[in-house]
Computed example of a mutant assay.
Amino acid sequence: MLRMALIAVSLAMLTVVSAAQDAPAGIKRTPLQKIAFPEGYSTVMGLAEIAPGASSGSHTHPGIETGYILEGEVLMSVDGQPDQTLKAGDSYLIPAGVVHDVKAIGNGPSKALATYVAEADKPLASPAP
């Protein structure tokens, strides 16, 4: 039973690492952990590092994203909401399926700790149409 659990966790981490490698230029995503919880969902925590002027590009997630800006300053654009400038110490919440984009502004890189609670059978992120 433990062996099966370890195999499942290893496969889940490979999926997260694969998604991290698909990041746009100037974005580095480092998966930190992924658990299968709650039932039918995955909870994923990761570190996003954004080079000055880089943007994630408009995209969606099949679940909520919540995060905390660790360093730098970003412009957060979320459909249906006014753009927000977030700096180190600010937190954010993006509802499931809502198109959004984040861009590092200012002179240095930005870092955010993000947590996703997303449907387990869907890609963690998809480009917006």
Rank of each mutant, 00 (worst) to 15 (best):
A51I: 00
E49Y: 01
T60P: 07
N107I: 06
I64Y: 12
V74Y: 02
A48I: 03
L70A: 04
Y68I: 06
P38Y: 08
E65D: 11
V78E: 06
G63F: 12
H59T: 09
L113F: 11
E65V: 13
A104P: 05
G53A: 12
I35E: 11
A19E: 00
R3S: 14
I35V: 15
V9T: 11
A12H: 06
L70T: 02
P129H: 04
L70Q: 07
K111I: 04
V78T: 14
H61V: 04
A5Q: 15
G108E: 13
M4H: 13
A5D: 13
L2I: 12
Y68L: 15
Y116S: 01
I105Y: 11
G72A: 08
A51R: 13
I94T: 14
S58C: 03
T15A: 15
S77Y: 00
I94W: 10
H59R: 11
G26T: 06
G26W: 04
G46H: 01
D79N: 12
L86W: 04
D22V: 03
Y68S: 09
T30W: 01
H59C: 09
A112Y: 01
L113P: 04
K28A: 07
P109C: 00
D22A: 05
V44R: 03
S18T: 03
E71R: 15
E73M: 10
A8H: 12
V17T: 11
S110R: 02
A114M: 06
I7L: 14
I50R: 00
A23D: 01
I50M: 01
A5P: 00
E39I: 06
G57H: 10
I69S: 08
F37Y: 12
E71W: 01
P62H: 12
G108Y: 05
L124V: 08
S42Y: 06
S56K: 10
P62I: 12
T43Q: 12
M13L: 13
V78W: 03
L11F: 05
P62A: 11
G26L: 05
I105P: 07
I69N: 07
Y68F: 15
E73L: 01
P109R: 12
R29V: 01
P109T: 05
G108W: 02
V16W: 00
E39H: 10
Q84E: 15
K87N: 04
L86R: 06
V117F: 04
E119T: 15
L75C: 08
A120Q: 10
L113M: 14
L86I: 05
P123M: 08
A118T: 14
A36T: 11
R29T: 02
A54I: 07
L2C: 03
E119Q: 14
A5R: 14
H59P: 10
I105F: 12
L14V: 11
A88R: 09
E119F: 09
K28G: 01
V78N: 06
E119Y: 08
L14Y: 08
